[in-house]
Design a protein around this nucleic acid. Sequence first.
DNA 1: CGTGGTTTTGAACAATCTCAAGAGTTGTGG
DNA 2: CCACAACTCTTGAGATTGTTCAAAACCACG
Lengths: 251, 251
Amino acid sequence: MPTKTSNMQIIKPANNKHTIRCQDCRIKQLCLPVMLAESEVAHLDTIVHRGRPINKGQHLIQAGDSFNGVYAIRSGSIKAYTISVDGLEQITGFYLPGEIIGFDAISSGFYPGFAKALETSAVCEIPFERLESLAAEIPGLQRQIFRTMSDEIVKDQDLMLQLNKKSAEQRFGSFLVNLSFRFGRRGLSSQRFRLPMARSDISNYLGLAVETISRLIAQLQDDGLVSIQKREVEILDMNKLSVLAGTSCHQ
Amino acid sequence: MPTKTSNMQIIKPANNKHTIRCQDCRIKQLCLPVMLAESEVAHLDTIVHRGRPINKGQHLIQAGDSFNGVYAIRSGSIKAYTISVDGLEQITGFYLPGEIIGFDAISSGFYPGFAKALETSAVCEIPFERLESLAAEIPGLQRQIFRTMSDEIVKDQDLMLQLNKKSAEQRFGSFLVNLSFRFGRRGLSSQRFRLPMARSDISNYLGLAVETISRLIAQLQDDGLVSIQKREVEILDMNKLSVLAGTSCHQ
DNA sequence: CGTGGTTTTGAACAATCTCAAGAGTTGTGG
DNA sequence: CCACAACTCTTGAGATTGTTCAAAACCACG
């Protein structure tokens, strides 16, 4: 199968160009190395595979692939989605630099969903068996894996609440506030940022129609809370937006 | 504070009556001991606290309590829920024997939500720091914790899909099929079982109105798929119900 | 400078909610 | 053991949010 594009082939063996050590990684505070001693980070670094960047639209993970590891996003952005038996696509999350995708595959040994690059992105593949062994040796690493998975659970439960109990306006407001928080955490502006995803991805994620997102954007602009030109977002009144969203900064 | 009912006080020191060792536990195949050698189970057993059963309506976990451990359900059933800033309750899951609650507290160090007994229930408290240490020594245990947390993520993502993309009928159908599966897995009948929760809990969990649940029950009975008398469920046509639900057995 | 995808806007429609009221159930105290 | 109070559940009818369908404007990219 020369044209097969499984994740194992996308992630090419590391070469100099794409090899940035964990120790030197800009976003190590957001990733597994947080809380580790320098020597421990170096140890972790030895098991990480880095490949060439994956292009927009390319799949990092295909549903049904057997689980070999988790992927830390180094740059770019990834959307994770599942497809139900009746063919409906459901986006389960957007992953930004420092965030890790693939923990949902541990239980069954197969990735339950897809992961696709929203733009050119660099990811670090972390083989899970080796990560497990290392976690048994480095308590801080084990702890950080538990934390990251726990974060994922909290994020999903918060989204559940959004979908169940909040209006379209509140959902979209929360979405913007949450993105703003995650950009700010990386040292980027939390006032101005670029949406990496299409309107249809936002609507899918939030359980709304694309048209509803368009209308909400128009409305929030009329109210002077935000300014959104294409994918460029400027948050004009974070307080009002947070109140409207009914959240602090998580969603 | 003599009337305070924090989780630490609910779980009384073990006594003979409530001390069932992990090795002898009926549901060890569904719980952390699965995959462990006998001696490893014995080791795990030494860190588990078992208390007297908690009564219906009593809280096992209060939101904001500091994280000390996870709880394995031994008997009964527990509902987990969060309360949003504007006071809305959102049930995030129902936990049955063999299932473990509390992993969402690892990331922040505080339980983000509440856990309340739907009926008299017995739980095993597993202090997390000790569990971490033990997990570092017993690879199978570490693996099983990862699996359990991964399961939780998958469960939440599936529910997300339900809430976003499925009709009220499909959601309720999936809910029944999923419960059926979980009862069957415990060796109980998957055809006939008793709902541990009220209609309002089901509606809250599924993002519907109570009235909608009532109407759906009436409808599914008219169609001859199920028979539901009060909380006693009998599934009359599992095939049709599964097709309607659009799932195999997970939700 | 077309072609295909994305975004916006309008208008009618539908699924589910809300409100309201009644029936059934459970628990409690006299 | 009965009666009252408090829930829980069911059923009906109208209201509403967000959807669907349709079409035009905009953009990106070859």
